[in-house]
């Protein structure tokens, strides 16, 4: 929401080239710039072969997102995960990752990433997990295990890139799971391709309407916009058109202001609509100190921070002015 980006395509991330094979063959891909060898472009999507070691994944995805510089609409990871504690029947299916946890050795990392409301949780391990007791240890945190998701989450969070993860579940029952997977790669790649192509990945509904292009919001302003918009929609049952009309968007748009100033005006108006009592309360304070304002004081009530913040600059000439201000401040807090 922060700017109109030229984001056009999804970036499909695969840990192994074999899992991407059908995509590479079917989508008429070409290597991209100096990342040729692990980053490819087709008319439909970018494809990254990330490797599976967490550090390798983090460096490649970071490099790739930096190189493509906002051309990526979203990152879709299509990979494999080992089923640790799934009910029978989970193997061989493709599922979305809900929350991603991470571990280094046997120690868990506290931070987690929630990507979806549905699907299985997954834990990313820095090392290959083979021993029974290690599998049990990780299964207490999540039913699926992989080696790359956590890195993708970290980088995508840092770069504010939307991320969704889809995993083909392989069984842990098989003693030769690795060899089995290798022999099945062609089939798995085809399944992932069909999943992407036909079942496709349902677009998440955009609940918060985007402001028009000539209104600019910084990240914190966008957050406020979301808050006020949600309140007006949920509490007052207003539609997008009604909200904009009430906020006087057209009039704001006609004014000769920069996009950010327009954004600020729109936000102030939405604040008034969302919190009329608070707005009135603040107005009353401004009125209380009107004489000081008339005398050249600057008083600014900042809505951009959720705190009781007043920015006042003044040159106090005598004690009566000081008293007046203190009285107004007391009133502001005690009404």
């Amino acid at each position: 929401m922060t700017s109109v980006m030229e984001a056009t395509k999804s970036l499909l991330v695969f840990s192994h080239r074999q899992a991407a094979q059908v995509f590479l063959e079917s989508l008429k891909t070409e290597g991209v710039g100096f990342l040729n060898g692990f980053l490819y472009e087709s008319p439909q999507a970018y494809i990254l072969i990330s490797g599976e070691h967490p550090l390798q994944v983090a460096s490649r995805i970071g490099l790739c997102l930096g190189f493509l510089n906002k051309k990526v609409k979203e990152v879709l990871h299509l990979g494999l995960a080992m089923g640790l504690s799934l009910e029978k029947g989970g193997e061989g299916t493709i599922t979305e990752a809900r929350t991603v946890y991470g571990a280094s050795g046997l120690l868990f990392w506290h931070k987690s990433f929630t990507l979806s409301e549905k699907g299985y949780d997954i834990i990313t391990s820095g090392h290959r997990v083979k021993k029974k007791e290690e599998i049990e240890h990780f299964a207490r945190i999540a039913p699926l295990l992989d080696r790359e998701s956590y890195s993708l989450c970290m980088v995508c969070e840092e770069t504010h890139t939307p991320l969704r993860i889809f995993k083909y579940i392989v069984s842990r029952e098989s003693e030769h799971a690795c060899q089995e997977v290798k022999s099945l790669y062609q089939e798995i790649s085809l399944k992932l391709y069909h999943f992407w192509l036909y079942y496709s990945i349902e677009e998440k509904p955009q609940e918060i309407c985007q402001p028009p292009g000539d209104v600019y919001f910084t990240t914190s302003m966008a957050k406020q916009y979301e808050e006020y918009y949600t309140i007006l929609k949920e509490r007052d049952n207003l539609t997008q058109e009604e909200i904009w009309k009430k906020a006087g968007l057209e009039e704001i748009q006609r004014q000769k202001l920069s996009p950010k100033q327009k954004g600020k005006k729109l936000l102030n108006r939405l604040f008034e609509l969302a919190y009329p009592e608070e707005y009135a309360y603040r107005q009353r304070f401004v009125q209380n100190i009107q004489s000081l304002v008339d005398a050249g004081w600057t008083v600014d009530l900042d809505n951009s921070l959720r705190q009781d913040a007043l920015y006042i600059s003044a040159r106090i000439k005598d004690s009566r002015e000081k008293e007046r201000l203190l009285e107004a401040l007391r009133d502001y807090h005690e009404i």
Binding site: T99, H110, K111, S112, T114, R140, I141
Partner: peptide, 12 residues
């Protein structure tokens, strides 16, 4: 060893 070792979302 497990409780609060990872941040488990409340709604889980």
């Amino acid at each position: 060893d497990y409780f609060e070792k990872v941040r488990k979302p409340y709604l889980h």
